[in-house]
């Protein structure tokens, strides 16, 4: 049995690469968390997504067009980050042996940008028969700059392009923490809340 605080995602990766152990309904408990993180959102990746998805709106691939639309720089496609949520469950389940994904729903609340760290999490909220229900959320961490003695020693894209708004500050989304080079200012916000249901075979 997995511990309540254990990250099922990590277990799943082990399962796929080494253990090849089946995932069963008895492996789940309410409160367990599955998680993945992705920090390589960049312009090349969004171009690849645009090509693969057929959504070629240039606000996702051209900074000039996005700036003219008042966006200060390109934004990821609304459903781009959904793929990291579905991958979370695809990594967890061998769909022939373990179970299948029944439903995933997302609400698009915040724009995702190049340079963001995207954290995808799913928390088990209910287990009914062979079905496991999750609340999901995708959070973006947007680095702004690093300051030392009030001087900016490193500036990130969000700082250069002014992605952080007064509203973000008013809502308490902009935070600081100490890092090796100084004080890092970053924004943390939930971009995509949602829900998911999977069904196990055993």
């Amino acid at each position: 049995m997995l511990q309540q605080t254990q990250l099922l995602g990590q277990v799943a990766i082990k399962k796929l690469e080494v253990i090849k152990k089946m995932v069963k309904i008895s492996d789940f408990n309410v409160g367990q968390v599955i998680k993945n993180e992705f920090d390589q959102i960049n312009r090349d990746l969004l171009r690849s997504y645009a090509k693969a998805s057929g959504d070629t709106n240039p606000i996702h691939t051209s900074d000039a067009v996005a700036e003219r639309a008042g966006l200060k720089g390109i934004i990821a496609h609304g459903l781009f980050s959904f793929g990291y949520l579905s991958k979370l469950f695809e990594d967890l389940l061998n769909q022939e042996k373990d179970g299948k994904v029944l439903e995933i729903g997302v609400e698009m609340r915040g724009m995702v940008r190049c340079g963001d760290l995207l954290i995808t999490e799913a928390v088990v909220t209910k287990i009914e028969g062979k079905k496991v229900y999750f609340d999901t959320k995708q959070t973006t961490i947007t680095n702004v700059d690093i300051k030392k003695d009030e001087e900016i020693v490193k500036q990130f894209e969000a700082g250069e392009r002014g992605y952080i708004s007064e509203k973000d500050i008013a809502q308490g989304l902009v935070k600081t923490k100490e890092v090796d080079e100084g004080t890092l200012t970053y924004r943390e916000r939930v971009s995509t809340p949602g829900t998911a249901i999977i069904e196990l075979y055993e």
Partner: peptide
Amino acid sequence: HAGNKYNWE
């Protein structure tokens, strides 16, 4: 586009 829910049941 405000949200999507996919059901594969």
